[in-house]
Design a protein around this nucleic acid. Structure first.
Lengths: 280, 280
DNA sequence: AAATAATATCTCTAAATTTGATATATGGAT
DNA sequence: ATCCATATATCAAATTTAGAGATATTATTT
């Protein structure tokens, strides 16, 4: 039972097909076939039912899959800890909301680099809900998300406190649609709650993928947005955007760094926590 | 981090030398060197301090060793369970006291074979203390040992009840030395306790490795032995051996099948338990 | 300084894995 | 029914990797 075989098993189960797995593993499909067959030969059992619809786990396949997930997870965790202990500095993969990444992280990561020069840090951005799912599934080590945080499942330290404002165009302050990130973004949820409190639940919503895009549209007069004050002030077209305060409780949002409760932080992660705790 | 590398690490740590590990792994020493180096390269850390005195784990090596032990153990347990679930029948490795193996196991294993034809069973013999150590260290799945059993660490089912007797030569019934297995054999301990109760603690003890040897010597008039009645009756030279009863509490000894409390029995093992429970 | 006992290095060979091309199967549309 | 699209399976060649065996190096002891 080799590790590569188990990884292949997971990839097939996840993508639902041999060719999909080959793609995600960056190898050819005949390879996936051969690895799965090696596993099947080893146990003398079919692991996948093949069909046009794709590959489906058999009962035995399910059991093997469950074990493989556990084992690979333990293996990865052990390796991470050891790499960390080896002084080489285990990589730290972070997630962050788009706005936080734009406004807060550059300075923070610079300070982190100063304190832990050896470690490499990678960053994925996305809305709070997606980030929490990634942390839950161990796809990333930790993430910056908007509070509040479910403390039964995640460890958290407060990282920043944002003041949310309404960014609008001076020309037509109350018109146009709400420009927001896709569902899952906590600022969008806050914006909708605010509009609801004003009896404006029917406001049209335009989804956009990036903060720059949203603020650019606001500057162009296409609508208004809810975003952290810092982000709006730092925008490219800040001079064409008017900032209006939001009433409480919508105005104040804490951003937390969160990670799985059973996740042992690597050195870079510990340093990050220290920096945040010393700073807040 | 490959599994073979971790196994090699354990072997070097256990034998205390690269060449010793090569020997125990049935490969050449240069192989061991290369595998350990692969590990060391991977983590950028020395794992062993090499010296004339042998190989000693570094601090980092100790951590890696601890993790490797855990991971390999989990891997092996998972594979065992899956092989068992696959219907192929996971192998069952048993241990047994020499006398039990000679007198009781043939019939028992035949019945087991009848009920679980697919599974393969292997057997190691040794004294009770060694067997318990092997079960503790997961070298074997289960063992037949003399009671009583520490039930906080082992699961146990009673397998047989032996009546211990004193086997002696009719010609010189009370002379000669006690012929016994080496230290760790529970019958030997019983024999010594009995002799002590008779005020004969000073009786000379001759160690022998096999039951046949012991009984052969008894027949030849070299001494006497304490052994299960069945074993003595079935001996090759039974007609030249006289059987004398032992007083209680020395006469009755239960033999148990024991296994680690955290060990999940495979199919052949479960069948064996059933047979023993149905029979006792 | 030689002898010894250990690990390291090197080359060759064997085995296993990956590739890429192609064959085969399966389900749906024409 | 036949063809088409999308899967997986098979096969031979190429590549990579690990193992064996011979030899070199190192460190310790005498």
């Amino acid at each position: 039972m080799d590790i590569v075989l188990l990884k292949t098993l997971l990839a097939v189960a996840e993508t639902g097909s041999f060719s999909g797995a080959a793609n995600s593993l960056h190898c050819v499909q005949s390879n996936v076939t051969s690895r799965i067959r090696r596993l099947e030969d080893h146990f003398g059992q079919k692991i996948f039912l093949r069909g046009k619809a794709g590959a489906k786990l058999t009962d035995f396949g399910e059991r093997l899959h469950a074990k493989a997930e556990d084992l690979l997870q333990l293996f990865a965790a052990a390796e991470r800890e050891l790499l960390d202990a080896s002084g080489a500095g285990a990589p730290l993969s972070l997630g962050s909301m788009e706005t936080t990444a734009a406004v807060r992280l550059p300075a923070l990561l610079k300070r982190l680099k100063g304190r832990s020069p050896a470690s490499s840090v990678s960053l994925k951005t996305g809305p709070t809900a997606d980030l929490l799912a990634m942390v839950r599934d161990r796809k990333i080590d930790a993430a910056f998300v908007a509070g509040p945080v479910d403390s039964t499942r995640f460890n958290a330290v407060r990282a920043f406190t944002e003041r949310l404002v309404c960014a609008r165009n001076p020309a037509n302050p109350d018109n146009g649609s709400l420009l927001a990130f896709r569902t899952g973004c906590s600022y969008r949820a806050t914006a909708q709650a605010w509009l609801k409190s004003l009896g404006r639940s029917d406001t049209e919503i335009t989804e956009m993928g990036t903060l720059d895009g949203i603020l650019g549209c606001v500057a162009a007069g296409l609508g208004f947005a809810v975003a952290p004050e810092e982000a709006v002030r730092g925008a490219r077209d800040a001079d064409q955007i008017e900032i209006a305060p939001l009433p409480e409780p919508f105005a104040t949002v804490d951003t937390f760094l969160v990670w799985r409760i059973d996740h042992v932080p690597v050195e870079a992660h510990r340093t990050l926590i220290e920096v945040l705790e010393g700073h807040s």
